[in-house]
């Protein structure tokens, strides 16, 4: 015989906000941007958003895994696959996207430092986010340029399965990057009006880095199969 009454598990108590620990096991609660002061909310990331972005990333990864297997099966199913040379501009685009991840990371750390009270002016960390945004826009524009280049060469969506997959994968990826750009805009807007939560910044940048990783995976896949 055992008693089943146990004390409820202790939640991760934030010493600074003892009043906020009314909820427990999920460890949520405890994010109060008090009166618009960003410094009140430093380093507190509510798990739902954090878990949520991982779940979202898992779903996107699964979608591209499906596209990948479709590509491999389709390529192997017939001998009509005609390789073509990837437009050179793709490599420039890749460099832009990689650079944007770096600038975002710099920006994220600076905003975090600002939230922690190390830096005093919010415009400076935001500057890095603008740079990231610009690089991201250039990336999408560059992808568009690559499509135009291919069309000029007479390579269209339906020309060959290789080009079908090229347009499909790059377009679906670009759509997701546009979503990331919207996320960055949201972060910048909230930073400017002083209502940014640390978690929003963190998940937006996690998503952006994932777009970066995903792009290099796609580039490798296309480079190997086209």
């Amino acid at each position: 015989m055992a008693t089943t009454v146990h004390d409820p598990p202790k939640s991760g108590t934030d010493q600074k906000h003892p009043a906020l620990t009314t909820t427990g096991n999920g460890n949520r609660g405890g994010v109060l941007p008090g009166g618009g002061n960003l410094r009140e909310v430093k380093r507190y990331s509510p798990p739902p958003a954090s878990t949520g972005i991982w779940v979202g990333i898992a779903a996107i990864a699964m979608t591209f895994a499906a596209f990948t297997s479709a590509l491999i099966v389709r390529k192997g199913s017939s001998n009509d696959w005609q390789p073509f040379t990837l437009p050179i501009i793709l490599y420039l685009n890749s460099a832009l996207l990689l650079a944007s991840s770096v600038t975002l990371e710099v920006g994220r750390r600076r905003v975090a430092a600002f939230m922690a009270g190390v830096k005093t002016h919010r415009a400076r960390p935001a500057r890095w986010l603008y740079v990231t945004l610009t690089l991201g826009v250039f990336f999408v524009a560059g992808q568009y340029a690559a499509w135009k280049q291919l069309r000029a060469q007479g390579v269209f969506l339906a020309t060959n399965p290789s080009s079908s997959f090229f347009y499909l994968l790059t377009a679906v990826h670009a759509l997701h990057v546009l979503g990331g750009l919207a996320g960055l805009l949201l972060v910048i807007g909230r930073l400017r009006s002083c209502v940014l939560r640390r978690s929003t910044l963190d998940i937006a940048s996690r998503y952006w880095h994932f777009m970066d990783v995903l792009w290099f995976y796609l580039l490798l896949l296309l480079w190997m199969t086209l």
């Binding site: 146990h6 409820p8 598990p9 939640s11 009314t22 909820t23 427990g24 096991n25 999920g26 460890n27 949520r28 509510p46 798990p47 739902p48 878990t51 949520g52 779940v55 979202g56 779903a59």
Partner: peptide, 21 residues
Amino acid sequence: QLLGSLNFITTTLDMRTRGMS
């Protein structure tokens, strides 16, 4: 359904109240 699943997973993992292991 993907949006729904996202909510279901995060609700179960992160929204449990005190003592709800």
